[in-house]
């Protein structure tokens, strides 16, 4: 059996510069395995070790996804091998296109009965790719998964957060699981892991046919922030500062 971890190679928008015209400059934002995806890889590694499954990393995106640095960054976190689709046509690809390409690769890998993803990408964070991917595969998707184990009958026993509570579910067939950001603490790759990563197999696949009609961008701008007063209340006497703040909030009519 094979477990696939679908991960994203992306930069944190916090480090991007946005011009007044909405042009995004990502040159100072360093891409990496998207913030929460190492949690999915670690979850997959532990499950694969417990069940003897193979753990395959899968990522699709622009040419950066296929660089040696990107490959090693993913493989050093515990994957057995990698499948990447690195193509200019997928640079900045939207959710539906990304998910369609991922689904085609999951089918291509074959013998897959579980796909794991992280909890939302660091850049878009729309939480849609796993949902569309599951739709293409015709498998159920459970999100906010905090624990997963293989049941004796071959199914899955999954624990997930719902609101502030939790649920335990039994899943019969193949499934897509989106792992919560704090499900496990991912390993920090050491020098040995990084060197070993260079020797692991990587398969490069092509985009193939995608039938999604993505929308056309007709405008882009930096969001106008609400005009805020920006008034700093200072003083050594905390009680006096607090009283001043309360008076100001009363004057604003928000208390």
């Amino acid at each position: 059996m094979t477990i696939v971890v679908a991960y994203k190679w992306a930069a944190n928008p916090q480090d991007a510069q946005v011009g007044a015209d909405g042009a995004v400059d990502l040159s100072r934002a360093k891409p990496g395995v998207s913030e929460y995806d190492p949690v999915a890889i670690e979850t997959g590694r532990r499950l694969a070790d417990a069940t003897g499954a193979e753990l395959v990393g899968l990522s699709v995106g622009g040419p950066q996804v296929g660089t040696s640095m990107a490959r090693k960054a993913a493989l050093s976190r515990g994957l057995d091998r990698l499948v990447v689709v690195a193509d200019e046509a997928l640079d900045g690809a939207r959710a539906a296109t990304t998910a369609a390409v991922l689904a085609a690769q999951v089918r291509e890998i074959g013998d897959v009965d579980l796909v794991l993803t992280g909890d939302g990408s660091v850049d878009e964070g729309a939480h849609l790719v796993p949902a569309v991917l599951a739709g293409h595969l015709g498998w159920p998707l459970l999100v906010d998964v905090t624990a997963v184990e293989r049941a004796a009958d071959g199914g899955l026993r999954v624990t997930r957060s719902v609101g502030a509570g939790t649920q335990v579910l039994e899943v019969d067939g193949p499934a897509v699981l989106s792992v919560a950001a704090d499900a496990v603490v991912p390993r920090v790759p050491g020098m040995k892991d990084i060197l070993g990563a260079g020797k692991k197999p990587v398969a490069e696949a092509t985009v193939g046919q995608v039938a999604v009609s993505e929308p056309a961008v007709v405008g882009r701008k930096r969001p106008a922030l609400a005009q805020r007063k920006g008034r700093l209340l200072t003083g050594a006497d905390t009680a006096a500062v607090a009283a001043e703040l309360v008076a100001a909030l009363r004057a604003d009519g928000v208390l």
Binding site: A95, A126, L141, V212, S213
Partner: peptide, 17 residues
């Protein structure tokens, strides 16, 4: 969102969050 994604896949639609 899970439902929205399944609909997007089934209808070949784009999906925007």
């Amino acid at each position: 969102r899970v439902l929205a994604g399944a609909v997007a896949a089934r209808t070949g639609a784009a999906a925007l969050g």
